[in-house]
Amino acid sequence: MQTGLNALFAAAYLSLVAVGLVLIFGVMGVINFAHGELFMLGAYVVVALYTNLQMPFVLVVAIGLIFVGLVGILMEFTMFHPLRDNPLGGLVASIGFLMVIQASITIGFGVRMEHVPPVTQDVIILSEKVRLPVQRLFVILSAFVCLTALWLFLKKTKFGWALRASAQDPEAAMLQGISTRTVSIIAMFIGAALAGVAGSVTAPVISVSPVIGHSVIVSAFIVIIVGGIGSLEGAVLASVTYAFIHTVITTFIDGVIADIVGLSLMLLVLIIKPTGMFGTQDRV
């Protein structure tokens, strides 16, 4: 039970990061290597404004969302738009961006781990052995809220329609009078903002350091492959599956074996069905 709850917590922030990554890949066709750093940036917004300036936590999370979303738009303008016909170039540019963010944070805050005091120390005791810190519950709830909001946005609004259309077929979408540029900017904002929120709400639970993005991006890659590239539902479901398997193995055997199993799972999916569990089309 306790392991299940831990897994749910891991799945919550992982799915936020992975869905953002899928969204950006779907619309712009570029792999954002710096996505883990956007997560890290979200966590440092909390360090700067909540730990150091004592601003209310909810406000800080909202600022984290908007700030990291804007960083996403900055990436679109400076890198992904000029390099739209050059997928490998976009990849390298995002690696460059990753280094820039990481170094800036290191210069600004130092390499040591930052401890963010938890907003609340309350623990919900579900039974003798099962405890759920409210802070973790908050992560799970915010992931749920964000993903539901995104789902409604994509399925119910006009922008959502346009976004899905451009992900499916950019040229046909353009013929329908959809501005794919606007759509790219919106997708980039949402994708980055989701990673930012994930980083912000998770910051009090984990120890924040400039290198936390690395493990997040690897897990997110595994998840989007297993779930099927381009499938948002697949990404969420794969996050839950992966987080559960990973947490169980980490608890009962050890963390490195859990990583090996996760990567083997990804390799297996790539060998058997490269489009993943929910992928619709082959993008080779």
Binding site: M79, L83, A93, G96, F97, M99, Q102, A103
Partner: peptide
């Protein structure tokens, strides 16, 4: 500490 920052910037500028 600024080395990766400048290195990263050079990468971006050179692919652009």
């Amino acid at each position: 500490q600024g080395r990766p920052l400048i290195y990263g910037l050079i990468l971006i500028v050179s692919v652009l």
